[in-house]
């Protein structure tokens, strides 16, 4: 996190100097930025953290060989985690559940909400495939007991079963459950739970650094006009509008 704090300190110094709204030219700004020292290893670790958390295992492996940066997690577990994620994303929920249980049986045993969402996704897939009878049986046997244990599960279950009541599910009020986005939502929930069980942050650091950059710029906007980064992907400094 050293990069961020160095920038912040610079910004704070500038802020202190600005009694009224101060104008900082591009030269001044670039000179100040040049004085900030960032360690290469920190950059590499941020990149590695991003690759690992997002699950780009092959890239991470290559990056490790080329940069010598050690990942903060066993790369083999990423493959397993990605396999689970992929299984959910492609609708093979039962397969995903078995894989999670092989990875660590505690995850679904101690996380009723996640377990329910996976079972709910299984039900959604059955409905999507038109297996009405199987879906009803599954809902009654597997999901109803969970609904009895928890009121909010019951409500979600009712919403899901409602899918069966509509002829044209794409146009019904609960149709979004059949969207791919629902699968992605469930997949990312499983992904996060696996990461947490491995004592790993569930979000990469890079996006939060960028969020902090935007926040800091917004703070500074009130005090000074300076070359601002508006497009994060290009990180181009844009001249201040005075």
């Amino acid at each position: 996190m050293s990069l961020f704090w160095l920038v912040i300190r610079q910004l704070a110094e500038i802020e202190a100097m600005a009694a009224s709204k101060k104008v900082i030219t591009r030269e001044e700004w670039e000179k100040k930025l040049n004085d900030v020292k960032i360690r290469k290893e920190d950059m590499n670790r941020l990149v590695m953290n991003f690759l690992v958390t997002e699950g780009y295992v092959e890239v991470a492996e290559k990056f490790r060989m080329e940069s010598g940066t050690e990942p903060d997690i066993d790369l083999a577990t990423i493959t397993d985690r990605m396999a689970v994620k992929k299984a959910v994303q492609s609708g093979n929920v039962e397969d995903a559940i078995e894989k999670v249980n092989d990875l660590n049986p505690e995850i679904l045993d101690t996380n009723p909400q996640l377990f329910f969402h996976l079972q709910q996704q299984r039900l959604i897939e059955l409905i999507r495939n038109g297996k009405v009878e199987e879906a009803l049986e599954f809902a009654q046997e597997e999901l109803a007991p969970r609904g009895e244990e928890n009121q909010s599960f019951l409500e979600e279950l009712e919403r899901t079963v409602a899918l069966l009541a509509f002829e044209d599910v794409s146009n019904c009020p609960v149709g979004e459950l059949l969207d791919i986005s629902q699968r992605l939502k469930t997949a990312s929930e499983v992904n996060a739970a696996i990461l947490t069980s491995q004592s790993h942050e569930k979000d990469p650091k890079l996006p939060s650094l960028l969020k902090m950059l935007i926040w800091a710029q917004n703070q500074l906007d009130e005090k000074a006009a300076y070359p601002r980064i508006n497009d994060l992907s290009s990180a181009i400094l844009e001249d201040p509008t005075v």
Partner: peptide, 13 residues
């Protein structure tokens, strides 16, 4: 055994 395990995890009943 694996079948039993996968049945019971998360499922009190």
């Amino acid at each position: 055994i694996r079948e039993v395990k996968n049945h019971i995890i998360g499922n009190r009943t």
